[in-house]
Computed example of a mutant assay.
Amino acid sequence: MTRIALRPAINEAAEVLDRAGVRSPRYDAEELAAHLLGVQRTRLALVPLVEPELLERYRDLVARRARRIPLQHLTGVAAMGEIDLAVGPGVFVPRPETELLFAWTLAFLETLPHDHRPIVVDLCTGSGALALAVAHARPDAEVHAVEVDPDALTWARRNADDRIADGDTPIVLHADDATDPELLTDLNGRVDVVVSNPPYIPEGTPLDPEVIDHDPRRALFGGADGLDVVRGMLPVVTRLLRPGGAVAVEHDDSNGSELAALLGKNGEYSDVVEHPDLAGKPRFVAATRTTPR
């Protein structure tokens, strides 16, 4: 059977995705090809020729992506740190921007004294991305992850089981609401870091089809200004953190200053810092818990 050159098919796919309005058509075209071939995207040049049957499957995947089905739903995975996570319908797909929040978390953990096992809490964990990436990078940490949505929790459990199978330190999953006043009371005043990528988009914000048609609405929207869930979380965060512990919360482009003001208004936090993403857009706010009066 005659084999067919792959690169022209990838070029054609990129054009199809570009016409469909996909934001990263070349990257997505290459990722789909790499997924089918079981290789890294950067190694596609090592597979110049493919079977016609594989090319048919590739064009089918490209057509589905052109209908704005998320890339991660087609490949079944999303990355965070050094791990891959299973994702699909019913769970929020982790974004590359959240890698900055993850990196900040690891950097903060490095500043802690080595006199106790660090405790990390991930609120609104979704697929478990942040919690599991931290547990992988810091096997010495005690990591708790909280998620209220049953569908998302199913994905988080699957990912947690996969990480255990790969030898990572287990995390503790909690089927609970991040705004519950009774959440994790056994950890009161003991937590070193709280991180969260909560629902933070203001209602009515225009979104790409990949987001509005496929991510769960419960994981996206946070009320009129996007901060309803965050407001409910902050008393929990404040109660959990030890003095000198820190919180970092991802937010919408439009509400970072408001989030920073919420953290700074009662004197419960110091060193409130707004962090931009690689494009210079406001992405997350971090702050340090002061000593309670």
Rank of each mutant, 00 (worst) to 15 (best):
L123F: 10
S127C: 09
E258Y: 05
A248N: 10
V237A: 07
A175R: 12
A45H: 15
R59N: 07
L74G: 04
F92Q: 05
V143Q: 08
H73L: 11
L49P: 00
D186Q: 14
D192L: 08
P170W: 03
R59A: 10
Y27R: 15
E203A: 14
D168S: 14
G244W: 08
G245V: 10
I10C: 13
V285N: 04
I4N: 04
R43E: 10
G256I: 02
K265P: 00
V195G: 06
T290S: 11
P94K: 11
P150S: 14
R190T: 08
P206D: 05
G204D: 08
I119G: 03
R293L: 09
D122G: 12
L187Y: 10
H251D: 02
W104Q: 01
D192I: 03
P198R: 10
L74E: 02
A66I: 10
V87C: 04
T98V: 06
A135F: 04
E147D: 14
S254V: 10
L130T: 03
D225T: 09
P96M: 13
D176S: 15
D180L: 06
V47D: 01
I171V: 15
D176M: 12
H214T: 03
P202D: 00
L6Q: 05
H73N: 13
A5D: 05
G90R: 07
A133Q: 02
L46K: 08
L153G: 03
R138C: 11
P70C: 09
M80L: 12
P235H: 10
L55Y: 01
E82Q: 12
A156C: 10
L207A: 05
H136V: 00
D271Q: 14
T291Q: 13
R65S: 07
D140P: 07
A63L: 04
T42A: 15
H35D: 13
R163V: 00
D151R: 14
E110G: 08
L153W: 09
R231M: 13
D253P: 00
A260H: 08
L61K: 12
V16T: 14
L183W: 03
H35R: 04
A135E: 01
P198W: 02
